[in-house]
């Protein structure tokens, strides 16, 4: 892969807010990232960190109200997806950008056959006739490894297991040869062996089809196995972003460091208990004016209360949103002075 090809997707300063009865929820606070052709970007972060909301904002899948996109740009093929007309967006959804959702048990329509549901986008976007679309659906079902595909085409979702349904979801997402596949915790609802099968499958497909993939997960172990690059999210922001080896070798944000410590190690015989990250995730009532991780951070100092840290370049293609410089074990030069330290 050439070092820095043009990104297929470029997200700048995306802000998404939910208007609820009890006030606003700032679920996505100025998120920027890009995705390069053929790359697998892993996205990690605890529950509620805004992973799903970010991805759904990109292609207008959030119901509005309550969701409202407050700003930013999402550039795909030179156009801003946040401002293109709905009709054009529909030609991108499902055709150029495929989506696989968290819960395979509820994501398929129970009253249509699996075949119909795969055929639908093929007919709509590729304008194939019924027969050709059916052939394509069959091909896709074989591609995602559904045994006896020809017969199962006319089965309903409830006749499939969770793992098989997720394969169907992947087949739907891949139906029109998308440039980007966004997989939102596609394996969380599945047991470990099925999870491994799906991971293998995606690995294979990526090699075969060469699309860029965004893979959302809670599981850093999964990320280590498949991702090229990792983006760590916290409180609706990107706190660290780096190539996968770099991130595991030199984490530069306290949250990432804490996350890495929570992975149980198989080899390290002396790891008697799992570590937890103390404290609560932040409440997203307003756009952050200070570091949102500071309440749980062992490195907290005055600067953390004074401003929300921007993303600092900390290595090759590696940035972290923290005022603490782990290389020198001292505050960054750019850190605001803030109140006097009482450490």
């Amino acid at each position: 892969m050439p070092d820095r090809p043009e990104p297929v997707l470029d997200v700048r300063d995306l802000k998404t807010v939910f208007k609820t009865r009890t006030g606003e929820v700032h679920a996505v606070n100025s998120i920027s990232f890009d995705l390069r052709p053929g790359e697998l970007l892993g996205v990690v972060g605890e529950s509620g960190s805004g992973k799903s909301v970010t991805m759904m904002s990109l292609i207008g899948l959030l119901p509005s109200p309550p969701a409202q996109i407050r700003g930013g740009t999402v550039t795909f093929e030179g156009r801003n997806l946040l401002t293109v007309p709905e009709a054009d967006l529909r030609k991108i959804r499902g055709r150029r950008i495929g989506f696989v959702f968290q819960d395979p048990m509820t994501s398929l329509n129970p009253v249509f056959t699996v075949g119909d549901q795969i055929i639908e986008p093929i007919r709509k976007h590729m304008r194939l006739d019924r027969k050709a679309a059916r052939a394509r659906a069959l091909e896709l079902m074989q591609l995602v490894g559904i045994p006896d595909a020809a017969r199962r085409l006319t089965d309903y979702p409830h006749q499939f297991s969770g793992g098989m349904r997720q394969r169907v979801m992947i087949a739907i997402a891949l139906a029109c040869d998308p440039d980007i596949l966004i997989a939102d915790e596609p394996t969380t609802a599945l047991d470990v062996t099925i999870q491994a099968q799906i991971l293998d499958l995606v690995h294979d497909l990526r090699e075969k089809l060469g699309m860029a993939i965004v893979w959302i997960t809670h599981d850093l172990g999964v990320i280590a196995g498949i991702a090229d690059r990792v983006m760590v999210m916290y409180g609706g922001q990107v706190v660290e972003q780096a190539p996968v080896k770099e991130l595991f070798a030199r984490p530069r944000h306290p949250y990432t460091r804490a996350l890495l410590k929570t992975i149980p190690s198989v080899r390290g015989a002396r790891a008697p208990k799992l570590t937890v990250i103390e404290g609560q995730p932040p409440i997203l009532g307003a756009a952050p004016e200070a570091c949102s991780f500071r309440d749980r951070c062992p490195y907290r100092f005055a600067a953390c209360d004074a401003a929300n840290p921007p993303r600092f370049e900390v290595g090759p293609r590696h940035d972290a949103a923290c005022f603490w410089n782990f290389d020198r074990d001292a505050p960054r030069d750019a850190a605001p002075a803030g109140e006097a330290l009482n450490a």
Partner: peptide, 14 residues
């Protein structure tokens, strides 16, 4: 409000 409705939208259905 069901997930499958979101899936239909994600497929680019009208």
């Amino acid at each position: 409000g069901q997930d499958y409705v979101r899936t239909a939208r994600a497929k680019g259905m009208s």
